[in-house]
Amino acid sequence: MKKNMENYVFHAYTKMLFGKNQIDQLPEVMNDYGKTVLLVYGGGSIKKNGIYDKVYTLLKGWNIIELSGVEPNPRITTVREGVRLCKENNVDVILAVGGGSTLDCSKVIAAGHYYDNDPWDLVLDGSLITKALPLVTILTLAATGSEMNKNAVISNLETNEKFGTASKLVIPQASILDPTYLFTLPAIQTAAGTADIMSHIFEAYFGKVKDAYIQDSFSEGILKACIKYCKIALKEPENYEARANLMWASSMALNGLTGSGKSHAWTCHPIEHELSAFYDITHGVGLAIVTPRWMRYILNDDTVEQFATYGHNVWDLPMEEDKFEVAHKAIDKTEEFFKEIGIPMTLKEVGIDDSKLDIMAEKAVRFGGLGDAFVSLTKEDVVNILKDCL
């Protein structure tokens, strides 16, 4: 049933410093928040590309405490360590340097600083977040949009759980986006990051609200940019135009621009969260595997118009009289694109068999609210989609 655009509040207040050498403005940005900084980063690539030394040069006179080693699927154990460091050192501000994993981890650390119990509580229930340390980010991967939104996803390997939480209080105060920082990314990270950006768009684009023309037009433009510039970035890693457009696509895909007025439960993200909770796979890879299978599974008389429009406006397919033909071609184009950019397209290729499909499907439906998704899904539906992914 068609729904009208819902009421919404759009407030994207993060100060975005975009372009070459914007890191030079870091002291001015950080001056607003205090002199004791928790520097959070991942596996150490920022030491190879020079960002680490640059931060220390620019923040001479600041008291910097480090939390390194944030995992690709950030773990609650790392969040707990960050909270401990913040409390012991009376940290004023967090500086997160990295991709979405580092930023997400930092968000929950920022909230956990003011929380007396286990920060896992804040992952399970974002309403428990009542205060947070200010957060500044330096982005090194175009993917999650975490540099400009309220969301964070954290894994608990002890319980095989991976959940998203959200609070306006953890939205970054400022984010530095220098496209040159993407030049040295491994190809699979560029590809998986692009798949993540596109999935954020798909989750909002395919919905029951049909009159959000502006939002959907933004979505189609961002999808076309991803399709065009990911392939260029893979062939020419230091192509500034490609990197800049992918970086901005990441921020625009999940800051409320495309999803405002179109609320409903997401589908592919909750399913993928279970895959990476149990198997610790790369998030964007899992999304790319699931997405075209989900699209085919939900294609029906009610959804065909939207998939045909997607094919026409994004993939430039001629609008045939047979809408199903256009829709199928659009879904095929989506899967072919993910293959072309080098993403493995079956679960078996990433080490996942059929042994845990039932439990993953059950948890995806229970925790993801898939009954309220664009097309309502049961546990059996999710099992069938995952079987198609094998």
Results as ranks from 00 to 15, higher is better:
N149C: 08
K224W: 03
A166T: 04
Q173P: 02
Q189F: 10
G193P: 10
G221L: 09
T194L: 03
P186V: 15
L182N: 02
D178Y: 10
A187L: 06
P172I: 04
I188P: 01
L177Y: 02
E220R: 07
T190F: 01
K168N: 15
I214Q: 12
A187F: 04
K224M: 12
K168I: 13
N151Q: 09
Y213M: 12
T194M: 03
S167N: 02
N149W: 05
N149H: 06
P186I: 13
K208R: 14
Y205R: 04
I201T: 11
V209C: 00
L223M: 15
T190M: 06
L223W: 11
K224Y: 07
L177V: 15
K210E: 08
T165F: 03
Q189V: 08
L185A: 11
I176H: 01
E158L: 12
K168L: 14
E220N: 08
A225L: 11
I171Y: 04
I176N: 00
F218R: 06
F183M: 05
D211S: 07
F206C: 00
I154Y: 11
S146Y: 08
Y213K: 14
K162A: 10
S155Q: 03
I176M: 05
L185Y: 11
Y213S: 11
K168E: 15
A204W: 03
A225G: 08
I222P: 06
F183G: 03
Q173C: 09
S175N: 05
F183P: 01
P186Q: 14
Y181V: 10
K168G: 14
I154A: 12
